[in-house]
């Protein structure tokens, strides 16, 4: 065991402070909430409806956009072309845009005056205030998580294996589905869960696209605004527990076995 230097002790102290900043508010919130109030909140229909809506819209949006994000991630991992950096930049853009601004952008894109809004309207669908609109707003801000993880996953698959598969008479489509995708799957699944979890916790863009029906982050805001901190706390705890569940499962999945 190497001896700890005074410098290391200072670093450990600073690191401990940082952990405290994250853990202390969460712990105090959980400790300040009684089990009874948690149980009551978990049985409240408005709460359960919002949680179901949040999970379904985020999952639906993640699933839908993964059909576009994964193929693009593969192309970005394998091909060199002009404008590649530009595409990377565009994908990462939602990370730096304020989420309320992103909400305004999405709203403009799906409102009844827009091309997409008009098209949806013609089949009797109003995207604003609709779960599809919510899913779009969630996906808009969370897509970089899936895309970047998938691209990194594909980049880690040796090109040699794909070449060997081609030589073994697999079509490029078959190579993708039997070699590239399975070997990048851990990374893709972890990106999928990240995007899903990030979508669930999204407030800024969702509140602009759809105040109703209420997703859980919007409901927390609504209850806090109307009834105050004590009333909003139990629902916040319930929602955090649900997010934690996904976060822990993500950590378990990405705790990758070393592959040769």
């Amino acid at each position: 065991m190497t001896k700890l230097q005074p410098l290391h002790l200072v670093f450990i102290f600073l690191g401990g402070l940082l952990l405290l900043v994250i853990v202390a508010p969460l712990a105090s919130m959980v400790l300040a909430t009684s089990p009874t109030s948690l149980l009551n909140t978990a049985q409240n229909k408005a709460v359960t409806d919002s949680i179901i809506l949040t999970i379904l819209t985020s999952f639906g949006g993640t699933l839908f956009f993964s059909f576009m994000a994964i193929p693009l991630a593969y192309i970005m991992a394998r091909k060199q072309f002009i404008g590649k950096r530009l595409i990377s930049g565009i994908i990462d853009l939602p990370i730096v845009i304020p989420h309320t601004a992103a909400g305004i952008a999405v709203l403009g894109f799906i409102s009844r005056d827009s091309f997409l809004g008009k098209a949806a309207d013609s089949v009797g669908l109003n995207l604003v205030g609709h779960p599809i609109g919510i899913a779009a707003a969630m996906a808009f801000v969370s897509i970089p998580f899936l895309f970047n993880a998938a691209r990194d996953g594909f980049e880690a698959v040796p090109v040699r294996l794909e070449k060997a598969a081609l030589n073994l008479k697999a079509s490029p489509l078959k190579v993708f589905f039997t070699i590239s995708l399975p070997l990048a799957s851990r990374s893709i699944i972890s990106g999928f869960i990240m995007m899903f979890a990030r979508g669930m916790s999204e407030f800024g863009s969702v509140v602009i696209v759809a105040y109703h029906p209420m997703t859980t982050p919007v409901l927390i805001f609504e209850w806090f605004n109307s009834y105050g901190l004590n009333y909003a706390r139990p629902i916040a705890v319930v929602f955090i527990l649900i997010c934690l569940l996904f976060f822990i499962s993500l950590r378990l999945i990405t705790k990758e076995k070393k592959r040769v």
């Binding site: 040796p158 040699r160 070449k163 598969a165 070699i179 399975p182 070997l183 592959r259 040769v260």
Partner: peptide, 9 residues
């Protein structure tokens, strides 16, 4: 191939 490129999965 030199590294055999045997599919690890």
């Amino acid at each position: 191939f030199q590294d055999f490129a045997v599919f690890p999965h």
